[in-house]
Design a protein around this nucleic acid. Structure first.
Length: 646
RNA sequence: GCCGCCUUAGCUCAGCCGGUAGAGCGGCGCAUUCGUAAUGCGUAGGUCAGGUGUUCGAGUCACCUAGGCGGCACCA
């Protein structure tokens, strides 16, 4: 007998060999019908599998998030079956569930075409309709290898060969189609449902290694219900509407062109936005005890060799050779420059922590395929800073940084979503002992500073030290990594940074590399998409447009614009001979937050009618009051807080 | 860099089986002075990304190159 403990705390005994389905049936026929999977002591199991023992027990239906993941996983199996039915000779590799959907990687000489997707989708629907039972089988390892080799599935055979010897080999069968899989799965293909859609074709490397064969990946999305699928497709549309490249063009913020791949031509409005954010960041770091510096853009190759960057990233640096034979490199990052400034003259323990900031313009020869709008560039500017400090100051500095980062993000309407700790990579500088210390210290500091779980990422750290990654979430739920904090014992050593300690001895400082925006350009891209171009007043490149209704009001319109400008607002004056409807529409589409239409009525009463973006109707105020109110609202959030504190 | 797709007017996009290029918006000109999301009329814009080839004939077919897009790989 086995004893099961149900979610409500009740306990019941069942015969050995009872399956989840038996249990469900014993409770209610309707539950058996809706049951898809069970969870036993935290582990998901197939509904028809004999329960291996007792424990806490739960029956999962379609509504459970865990079931959705299995639906997606099964959708990938149905995809693979459909592809193999339609395109014999195609090899299967792996096909997991992912966020919002699934994919499957295939090995096939012919490329799939976009037209094939519709055909495959139709076949998938057929397989769902066939309602094939999905059956779990335990196979002998060698037989499994021989089987998959025998039917020409070299990748599957390789996967099994690489599994640890004691691993149970399970094969799931749906109809006459079989796949090696850990499971669990739904009882039959019908339960996958029809709320799926194949979305894109892509290339991917076998086992994620670019030295391996290139496979063809088919992506799909799958949901528990048609309504969920619809909602998902709507979200995608919304994201496309917010694409920073699209808005950048529509709002005339910037452009890119092939003569300068991966570099931005900022237009006047875009540059206004950029400078607004830069000024804000400058105030924030200054207020937080940083000093700002500027290091050379191009430095001798020798310095990069010494720092270790040449060896690891030399291929990705822009270099030049002078007529006198010097070899120079355009800086790909700012740390070596900052260490030079630290090293100039003597530093005392009294100078620590020394927080050295720079809006550092960096150039990196990024692979062509990595470039993405203004999110991933070859020329970008980091809101960089290096904190030189003692080991015992790491935690306090980390806490201080996280506080600043949170405050900055919230000023842009963004929420910190997750924090990850990237640990030592395979290729790295510094001894294992140093890494042990660095990882432990940063981990502890992070736990103390961050009010959430810190997910470890093995092998993802920088070559000189472990790295905290701050991922933020925008208005429609997408996440982006912008902020980072990296702990570095290596560069101070390599570049001979020292300070004089209390006892007169020379000591090595620790370096914290940190950025909040990461790259100013990427952060602006995130901000553009987050606000969909409809910026709050303090960020909007054009804050207000004064539009005349008839030419009688031109003089008053000029006066209004001048008054707003004098109050520090970024104003445009629209005196064109156009109907007010036309002007309102045009400036609304341009996402101008404030439109002040000025006609005879306003001129006579010296009033201002203000129309807000996204609303109908106007607020009428006396001119002086309106100007004061707008000027007040346009104050950046940090200055507004400072004013409030008095 | 790798795989796939795409590139037609300033922008968004039509253009069938290969027969010699179109729309809307925008621009420019003229008229219109109008009260909160498109006033009317007129007009000018194109080596169809670049190149080579097939063909009597190429925006359309093939190949090459460049760039963009979606993934992958990379990301100090």
């Amino acid at each position: 007998m086995i004893e099961l403990i149900f979610p409500d705390g009740s306990k019941r005994a069942f015969d050995d060999g009872a399956s989840g389905r038996d249990v469900a049936a014993s409770i209610a026929k309707s539950l058996e019908k809706r049951a898809l999977l069970v969870r036993l002591d935290g582990q998901l199991l197939d509904l028809d599998r004999a329960l291996p023992g007792g424990g806490t027990f739960e029956i999962l239906t379609r509504e459970s998030p865990d079931a959705l993941e299995v639906i997606r996983h099964d959708a990938s199996h149905v995809l693979a079956q459909a592809v193999q039915e339609l395109f014999p000779g195609t090899q299967v590799t792996i096909g997991p569930a992912i966020e919002d959907g699934f994919y499957y990687d295939f090995a096939r000489d012919e490329p799939f075409s976009l037209d094939d997707l519709a055909t495959i989708e139709a076949r998938m629907a057929e397989i769902v309709d066939r309602d094939e039972k999905i059956v779990r089988e335990v196979w002998d390892r060698d037989e499994a290898i021989a089987h998959f080799r025998g039917i020409g599935e070299a990748y599957k055979a390789e996967i099994i060969s690489d599994l640890p010897g004691d691993e149970v080999i399970t094969v799931y069968r749906q109809g006459d189609w079989k796949d090696l899989c850990l499971g669990p799965h739904l009882p039959s293909t019908r339960h996958v449902g029809k709320a799926f859609k194949l979305t894109k074709l892509a290339g991917a490397y076998w086992r994620g290694d670019h030295r391996n064969a290139q496979l063809q990946r088919i992506y799909g999305t799958a949901w528990a219900s048609e309504a969920d699928l619809e909602a998902h497709l709507k979200r995608i549309e919304e994201a496309e509407r917010r694409d920073h490249r699209r808005i950048g063009r529509a709002m005339d913020l910037f452009h890119l062109q092939e003569e300068a791949r991966g570099m931005i031509f900022w237009h006047p409005k875009g540059w206004t936005l950029y400078r607004t954010v830069e000024s804000y960041m400058r105030r924030r770091v200054e207020a937080d005890g940083y000093v700002e510096v500027k290091a050379p853009q191009i430095m001798d190759r020798g310095l990069w060799e010494k720092s270790g960057h040449w060896e690891k990233f030399g291929q990705a640096m822009f270099t030049c050779e002078t007529t006198e034979g010097e070899e120079l490199a355009v800086k790909p990052m700012n740390c070596p420059g900052h260490v030079q400034i630290f090293n100039f003259g003597q530093k005392s323990y009294r100078d620590l922590p020394l927080r050295m900031a720079e809006f550092g313009a960096c150039h990196r020869y990024e692979p062509s395929g990595a470039l993405h709008g203004i999110m991933r560039l070859r020329a970008f500017t980091q809101d960089d800073a290096h904190i030189f400090c003692r080991e015992d100051q790491i935690e306090a500095e980390t806490t201080k940084f996280v506080k600043l980062l949170n405050s900055v993000y919230s000023d842009f309407g963004l929420d910190l979503h997750s924090v990850k700790l990237a640990l030592r990579p395979d290729i790295r500088a510094g001894s294992d002992e140093v890494w042990d210390i660095a990882e432990a210290k940063l981990d502890r500091a992070a736990r103390q500073a961050v009010n959430m779980e810190v997910e470890p990422l093995p092998g993802e750290g920088a070559f000189y030290g472990p790295k905290l990654e701050f991922h933020l979430r925008d208005a429609i739920g997408r996440t982006w990594q912008c902020g980072t904090l990296q702990l570095d014992f290596v560069l101070p050593e390599r570049l001979d940074a020292e300070y004089v300690a209390e006892d007169g001895s020379k000591q090595r400082p620790v370096m914290l590399h940190r950025a909040i925006c990461g790259s100013m350009e990427r952060f602006l891209g995130v901000a553009i998409e987050n606000y969909a171009g409809a910026f709050p007043l303090w960020l909007a490149p054009t804050q207000a447009v004064v539009a005349s209704i008839t030419s009688d009001a031109d003089d008053y319109a000029r006066e209004v614009a001048a008054a707003l400008k004098a109050a520090g607002l970024r104003v445009e004056l629209d005196l064109r001979n156009e109907k007010i409807n036309y002007k309102v529409r045009e400036h609304s589409l341009a996402k101008t937050p404030v439109i002040a239409a000025v006609g005879r009525r306003e001129a006579e009463t010296r009033a201002l009618a203000i129309r807000r973006l996204g609303t109908e109707g106007q607020t009428v105020l006396p001119l002086d009051e309106a100007v004061a109110a707008l000027a007040d609202e346009a104050i950046p959030p940090d200055l507004a807080r400072a004013a409030l504190r008095g």
